[in-house]
Write a protein that binds this DNA or RNA. Structure first.
Length: 537
RNA sequence: ACGCCAAUAGCUCAGCUGGAUAGAGCAACGGAUUUCUAAUCCGUAGGUCGCAGGUUCGAAUCCUGCUUGGCGUGCCA
């Protein structure tokens, strides 16, 4: 209803402009950029310019021309025309408010993220991907998409072979007392030893071969799932790269199609895809001279598979090292009739891990590593997720492990959670039930907000804006926008709460109604972003 | 060398179809509350928005050049 009112006002401004100046202009109201300013239009600047008028006069004239009926006010501040809606409108809006999930829009989306190689534990970067992927999938669900979360397991190719041979050496070293010579590219860290131990039986029975790889993958994935459980993330599908190579059918299809289109050629004993013909800056190797397929080849097969599964859209969340790979893949896919818009790749920028005041170079191979588990253990899942969710995806970020550990009790996530806990606290004191209990009672049916204070109005305004922020966050694939907006709500709430005692107030009933509504909203958003909403802290 | 990403307070980061006085948290300093949990609130201090041009009534935001850091660049994944 606020939307309608705003559209209404916008139309009034348009017709005022038409009447006075005979001018047509876009008078869509923008959200305020300063505290206390709800909506505004800078139209006077543009009109002043094009009509050769003084902008502030234009703003003045329109303001006085608008027929205000008490539901809003329009004031000219310099050349800005500011609009403010009445408290009654906000109160009415909020008394019907709930954090919406839109009805199904019939579209299916596949969101693939983390997809770390099954050769080591998850690290900080995976943590960032996990938090962002989780929140992003919620965003799509909110707007009616059918979302499928997917983890791509790179269990095919050379890294796996190297990992397998490392396991054999680690096993021999640990349990046979042999000294192993590791090659430059082999995995020497403690994790490798642990996995070797875990699948020791298999190594004993069938040294060598695919069986070891398979068991190793299973063991590593098992651990990864354990880590993900700690952040309440589960995937709808674990897709194994190796499954693409099972029958040879996929390889044949890709190669045949490219050959038919003249997009495949051989050079120096390797097979190339002619991506330059698809708008890319260079051609790429699909099959190495050694006879092995490259990662790109697998990716092409994988995304053809995704496309065939009937998704309307696919999103991949990748690390910065895959930056150039995105264009490469998207271009290549067009050769198979997959439109460019099908796949969006979000590049999650780097996370520098700072320890002892220094940037540490992590390596799965050598085990020089601070795992996600370790971080979750020492600072907790919510602070970790919040940390990643409050930063834009393209931002390079520093994760200072020491500072984080030391200051984890001050994490800004608690600021949000405390808002929810405070609301529950009041309800518990008054009714002996928490928010859920209250909402189940018949009391919940008779919420009236009455006449709201300016501070309440500000809070409701911020909640109202949240909807638009979510929509923007979706189109920009930036969950951080939502998280940061929650901070604003919390800031206003805490100020309100500090300054106004609810129980015992003349407006007690109405204020209770207000915080119940707010509590519901806060819980929805937090849960939706993958953050706990605790009733007590 | 080329391509992509970034650069905002001491630190970590917001600031998103160009708007008004650039904002939070942490760190520093000063206050409030013997509470509906102070995990809070109020205040002080802290900025040539990397540099230089340009476009615009208006630029942290758009364009160009440069600097610095990161990632990548035909057979790593």
């Amino acid at each position: 209803m606020l939307d309608e009112k705003l559209a209404d006002i916008s139309r009034s401004i348009s017709s005022a402009l038409k009447d006075i100046y005979g001018a047509d202009a876009d008078t869509t109201l923008k959200r305020g950029t300063r505290p206390g300013i709800e909506f505004f239009t800078p139209i006077s600047f543009e009109l002043g310019k094009s009509l050769g008028l003084e902008p502030r006069d234009v703003a003045q004239k329109i303001a006085s021309r608008l027929k205000m009926d008490g539901t809003f006010s329009a004031t000219a501040d310099g050349a800005f025309l500011n609009i403010s809606l009445s408290g009654a409108l906000y109160a009415d809006y909020f008394s019907h408010y709930h954090f919406k999930t839109f009805p199904a829009n019939g579209k299916k989306i596949n969101i693939e993220f983390i997809s770390a190689n099954p050769t080591g534990p998850l690290n900080v970067v995976s943590g960032r991907a996990a938090a962002v992927g989780l929140a992003l999938s919620s965003l799509y669900r909110k707007f009616g998409w059918e979302v499928s979360r997917e983890y791509y397991v790179n269990d095919h190719g050379n890294q796996m072979n190297i990992f397998a041979s490392s396991l054999l050496k680690a096993y021999a070293e640990r349990f046979k007392g042999e000294t192993a010579e590791y090659a430059e590219n082999e995995y020497t860290g403690p994790f490798t030893g642990e996995i070797a131990e875990e699948i020791g039986d298999i190594i004993e029975k069938a040294p060598g071969g695919d069986r070891i790889k398979k068991e190793a993958v299973k063991a590593v994935i098992g651990r990864i799932k354990g880590t993900l459980k700690n952040i309440s993330l589960d995937f709808d599908r674990w897709f194994f790269e190796s499954s693409l190579y099972e029958t040879g059918e996929n390889e044949g299809y890709v190669l045949d199609t490219l050959r038919k289109k003249g997009l495949l050629y051989e050079k120096d004993g390797a097979l190339f895809i002619k991506n330059t013909a698809l708008g890319d800056s260079q051609d790429w190797v699909l099959k190495k001279s050694s006879g092995e397929y490259t990662y790109l080849f697998g990716d092409i097969m994988y995304h053809i598979d995704k496309f065939r599964r009937g998704y309307d859209k696919a999103i991949n969340i990748w690390g910065p090292d895959h930056l150039s790979g995105a264009v490469r893949l998207i271009r290549a896919l067009t050769a198979f009739g997959i439109p460019e818009e099908f796949l969006s790749v979000i590049i999650l920028q780097q996370v520098n891990l700072i320890k002892d005041g220094r940037k540490i170079q992590m390596s799965k191979r050598t085990g020089n590593f601070i795992g996600l588990d370790e971080i979750l253990d020492s600072v907790g899942a919510d602070p970790t997720k919040y940390f990643f969710l409050s930063k834009g995806t393209s931002q390079h970020i520093d994760f200072d492990f020491d500072a984080f550990e030391k200051e984890s009790e001050k994490s800004p996530v608690f600021y949000l959670q405390y808002m929810f806990a405070r609301i529950n606290g009041v309800l518990l004191k008054k009714y002996g039930v928490d928010l859920d209990g209250f909402l189940d009672s018949e009391k919940a049916d008779e919420l009236e907000l009455g006449e709201i204070s300016p501070m309440q109005k500000e809070i409701i305004y911020t909640v109202y804006v949240l909807e638009a922020v979510c929509a923007e966050a979706l189109t920009k694939n930036e969950p951080a926008m939502v998280m940061n907006h929650m901070n604003e709500i919390a800031k206003k709430f805490h100020r309100f709460y500090q300054g106004e005692r609810i129980l015992g107030s003349e407006r007690e009933e109405e204020l209770l109604g207000f915080i119940v509504k707010l509590g519901g909203a806060v819980r929805s958003v937090l849960t939706f972003m993958g953050i706990n909403a605790p009733q007590r802290m």
